[in-house]
Amino acid sequence: MSRKRTSFRTELPLLVWLVLVWGALWRDFSPGNLAFGALIAVVVARIFYLPPVELSGRFNVWRAIPFAAVFLGKVVAASFQVMYLAVFRGPSVSNAVVAVPLRSHSDLMVTATGHVISLIPGSLVVEVDRSTSTLYIHGLNVRNDVDTAKLRKEVQDAEASLIRIMGTNAELEALQAEGRTATRGVGP
């Protein structure tokens, strides 16, 4: 077989996650159980081979914690919003399919953005164009161009936060450069 062997370092996050799930399922985090879990994790990762997830190698915990809190808040807001729309608007709700071009072209970033965006208020990924890294998003209760612009900005903001947490250095620099030009443009 002509597949590239995944390096241990790339596989490590996956193995750690598998061991944690093993421990959680057995409700037993004793060293013996975890060691056995690690053995099974390695065997599983070898036999059921999947293309490796290319992590960027950086992870900013200080940005991840507030992001998680904001994310949880948005999930709550989304749920109440959908519930409100379901009860009071129902059949007359107006939607839109909006194309949102993303900055990043990495699969991980597009996937993560798609996941986050599916869980926060009124948006659902309908189609992904991988070649241009564009998400086509179905927005709930999008009535006019103002709402469309808001939805697009929200998606791009979510991507920006994710880049700050775990994007590559190149993506981060591009984002910061973009922020500088934007503030210069708006400034007095």
Partner: peptide, 15 residues
């Protein structure tokens, strides 16, 4: 109550 499949998917996912 939602009229089409995709608005129903919103209801099915978030709350």
């Amino acid at each position: 109550r939602f009229p089409d499949l995709m608005s129903r998917m919103h209801a099915a996912t978030k709350p």
